[in-house]
């Protein structure tokens, strides 16, 4: 069994390397030998620019500076949204009054994509950091709230009955049963929210900013500098992947009880 498993894994790796190598070779081939090369750079050129951009500034900052701005924006907006979203969502899931009051307004606003808020938010807050935080907040808030809400609603009533039979007070039932029960759902929401937040920061930076990863690709586009656009995309992809991995690791630690056969 084990040997078979190792073989399967090796096969997977070989194919993966083969696939990615083919991809890069095809890219290099097309850009070197066909007319596409006139508009689109080859992989080597992109890689070189990527390395350079850690040392040579693009606009006002090197890549580090742009990354710092983008990530800071995401974190500020996201953390505020997550905290508020969990509170509002759980309030809606546990109290019918809160649900009746908040839900209609929430449902009115929820269908509007976060990106559609950008013009209004810029109009309100101008061009500083605040509008970016606000857009990221809007992008993350709905997901976290919605998931915390369903999570709190779906707590197994037998567990609540059981806690009551053990003499647990209402406050303790909330803290020790409802909250941990909804944790996996809240995490699911926070994961989706983080990727939405990352998307929202790009949009915000593309539409009104002087720095950040979104600005890099827009700058590349404005100056018809395709290598720069591709560098931006690579960096954005890597950061997105890192953020998602961090969330997954946090989930694995905090919700280990929720997985089948550990």
């Amino acid at each position: 069994m084990k040997k078979h498993f190792v073989g399967e894994k090796a096969e997977k790796t070989v194919y993966a390397i083969l696939a990615i190598a083919t991809f890069f070779l095809a890219w290099a081939f097309i850009t070197t030998f066909t007319a596409a090369g006139e508009t689109t750079p080859g992989p080597v050129e992109v890689l070189k620019l990527l390395v350079d951009s850690f040392f040579e500034p693009i606009g006002r900052f090197t890549l580090y500076g742009h990354l710092y701005y983008s990530i800071r924006r995401v974190l500020v907006g996201y953390v505020v949204a997550a905290v508020l979203g969990i509170i509002v969502g759980i309030a809606m899931g546990t109290s019918r009054y809160a649900e009746a009051i908040i839900k209609p307004i929430f449902e009115l606003i929820r269908p509007i994509p976060p990106i559609a808020w950008i013009p209004l938010v810029i109009l309100w807050f101008g061009v500083g950091e605040l509008p970016k935080y606000a857009i990221i907040f809007i992008g993350s808030f709905t997901n976290v709230t919605l998931n915390a809400y369903t999570g709190a609603q779906r707590v197994d009533p037998t567990l609540i009955g059981c806690a009551k039979m053990l003499g647990t007070s209402d406050r303790d039932i909330f803290l020790r049963v409802v909250l941990p029960s909804s944790l996996p759902q809240i995490f699911a929401g926070m994961q989706v929210a983080l990727s939405t937040a990352w998307m929202a920061v790009l949009a915000a930076e593309m539409i009104g900013a002087q720095e950040g990863c979104g600005w890099i690709i827009l700058r590349g586009s404005d100056t018809t500098n395709i290598p720069l656009v591709l560098v931006g995309m690579v960096v954005i992809g890597v950061v997105g992947l890192l953020l998602a991995t961090i969330m997954r690791m946090a989930e694995r630690r905090l919700c280990s009880w929720n997985r089948m056969d550990v």
Binding site: K12, L18, A19, I20, T40, W198, I226, M233, L241
Partner: peptide, 29 residues
Amino acid sequence: RRIDLFVTPLFDLVRPVPTIAWIPLMILW
């Protein structure tokens, strides 16, 4: 199986890039 082994890594390579980040490239193309 073979398509899975070959295409999935490529797909995973492209997937982490949010679609919005494709906009400038598409406009240039």
